[in-house]
Nucleic acid binder design. Structure first.
Lengths: 134, 134
DNA sequence: ATCGTTGCAAATGGTTTGCAGCTTA
DNA sequence: TAAGCTGCAAACCATTTGCAACGAT
């Protein structure tokens, strides 16, 4: 039998990874790679975008981070393991926020014979601060 | 006052555009640029991908075509003007299908102060033919 | 001293644009 | 003919990868 992917190589504890984990833990919303870069560069000024992508990928594989894929906008990332929820994207500031709750009966929308595995709901509009200003 | 975008330049009726419109009209589901290229090349073998993108954009601006943006997958395109609906993407064949209906009360999910402008729901799983086969 | 990790730059994949020639009107 | 179109190749943007230097263990 073929060998299973043996478990991602052991990880080292570097300043870059510590800074990225901290940025995610301190964020109150999912962050894009660019936002992560900016936040983590406060701790590690030389940090490069490639490292952000590599670390994000490693943290996702590790199960610590979750990708938030959005229609027509680059993915954001948030800590994994939260309860089921969806997202809101502000058309003005382009920030993404978590929203609680989920409509029931989504399975009822399915055409006959289709098998539902998951679903994504993205609300779009103005976040509270942008609604106030504009 | 500044001049409004004056209405997209007049359009010419070319074989490429006829082929693309026909492909969209005959499709029973939203198509990706690649799918459109394949379909339209049956009529216009020399058709290039750049022309597909340019034409798609023109048809969208014209209001005849609608973009179907999806989380983590390139956009598909469908005729505009259909009644409100959402989409299903098959994880096996990667085709996208229209699904009717829409859960009520989405506004109830909004955090306080947020203003809702639109929403997208993407269901994911196996389409009928892929569910059967696998 | 290893060997994973990093930054930089080059490579991707999907999409857009510049340009010279072609075509519609 | 003139302007809009088209195909091709180069440019773009977000993301990934090759590689030599770096640094955690």
């Amino acid at each position: 039998m073929s060998k299973r992917a043996p478990r991602p190589a052991p990880r080292r504890d570097t300043a870059q990874r510590r800074a990225l984990r901290a940025a995610i833990e301190q964020a109150d919303r999912p962050l894009s790679p660019g936002e992560l870069l900016g936040a983590a560069q406060r701790d590690v000024p030389g940090l490069g975008l490639a490292t952000v992508y590599r670390t994000v990928r490693a943290l996702v594989e590790e199960g610590w981070l979750a990708e938030v894929a959005l229609p027509g906008s680059p993915s954001r990332y948030e800590q994994a393991g939260k309860h089921h929820h969806h997202h809101f994207r502000c058309t003005l500031c382009d920030r993404v926020f978590e929203v609680d709750g989920c409509p029931p009966d989504l399975r009822a929308l399915l055409p006959r014979g289709f098998r539902l595995e998951s679903h994504d709901i993205t609300l779009t509009g103005r976040c509270a601060s942008c609604a106030r200003r504009g």
